[in-house]
C-alpha cells in the first residue's frame, strides 16, 4: 500500500509559510516523541551543525540543529547539509520501510553539503532501535506509527511467497 499523497492545495499553503514555525513545530514534536530514545546515541559529531530537511513536493524546508538536549529549530540560512526528498519518501524512511541508499540510487534522496555529516545523521538514525522508539512515544503516537508500518507492508512484501 502506498502512503497517501500530500494534497496539492495544502502543499501550496505550506510552501508559503515562513520556515520558522514548521521547524519549531517539528523540533518540538520530535523532542517530545523521540528524543528520549534518540538521545541515547552519541550525536556529538553533529553538535553545532545546521541542517535543512527539504520536502520538495510540498516546498517545505525545515532548518534544524542538534544540541545535547535535543533538536533545535533554526532560522532559515546557510546550512552544513541539506536532505531533499518527497514527503512520502521521508515518511517511508522514518517508518523504516525504505533503505536510504536505495532511494539515493533511484535519485529520490539527495544529500548536499557536508557528506560526512549527512552520513553521520543517516547512520545514527539507522542505529535507533525502532521498537524501543515507538514503545516510548507518548499519546499513542508509537502505536500509530507501528500500525502505519504494518499497513504499508513493513518490509513484508514477500510474505505470500514460498
Amino acid at each position: 500500500m502506498k502512503l497517501p499523497a500530500f494534497p496539492k492545495s495544502l502543499a501550496r499553503v505550506v510552501s508559503r509559510l515562513p520556515a520558522w514555525p514548521p521547524s519549531a513545530a517539528f523540533a518540538a514534536a520530535c523532542n517530545r516523541a523521540a528524543w528520549p530514545t534518540l538521545g541515547e546515541l552519541d550525536w556529538s559529531a553533529a553538535h553545532g551543525k545546521h541542517f535543512r530537511v527539504h520536502v520538495k513536493d510540498i516546498g517545505l524546508s525545515m532548518y534544524l540543529s542538534v544540541a545535547p538536549d535535543g533538536l533545535r529549530a533554526e532560522k532559515a540560512g546557510p546550512v552544513d547539509v541539506t536532505f531533499t526528498a518527497t514527503a512520502e519518501d521521508f515518511a517511508r524512511l522514518s517508518l523504516r520501510l525504505e533503505d536510504p541508499d536505495t532511494l539515493f540510487f533511484n535519485r529520490r534522496l539527495l544529500i548536499e553539503g557536508d557528506t560526512d555529516l549527512g552520513l553521520t545523521l543517516k547512520n545514527l538514525l539507522d542505529a535507533v532501535d525502532w521498537d524501543e522508539l515507538t514503545r516510548r512515544m507518548p499519546l499513542g503516537m508509537g502505536r500509530l506509527a507501528q500500525a502505519l508500518r504494518r499497513r504499508t507492508g513493513g518490509g513484508d512484501t514477500l510474505a505470500a511467497l514460498p
Binding site: R96, L97, E98, D99, P100, D101, T102, D126, W130, G155, T157, L158, L161, P162
Partner: peptide, 21 residues
C-alpha cells in the same frame, strides 16, 4: 554493512528462502 536495517531485512528474507529451497 553501510546500509540500513530495511535493506538487511529485505535481502536476508530472499536469500533465506532461496537457500532453504
Amino acid at each position: 554493512r553501510q546500509r540500513s536495517p530495511a535493506y538487511v531485512a529485505q535481502v536476508t528474507r530472499v536469500w533465506r528462502a532461496a537457500i532453504d529451497s
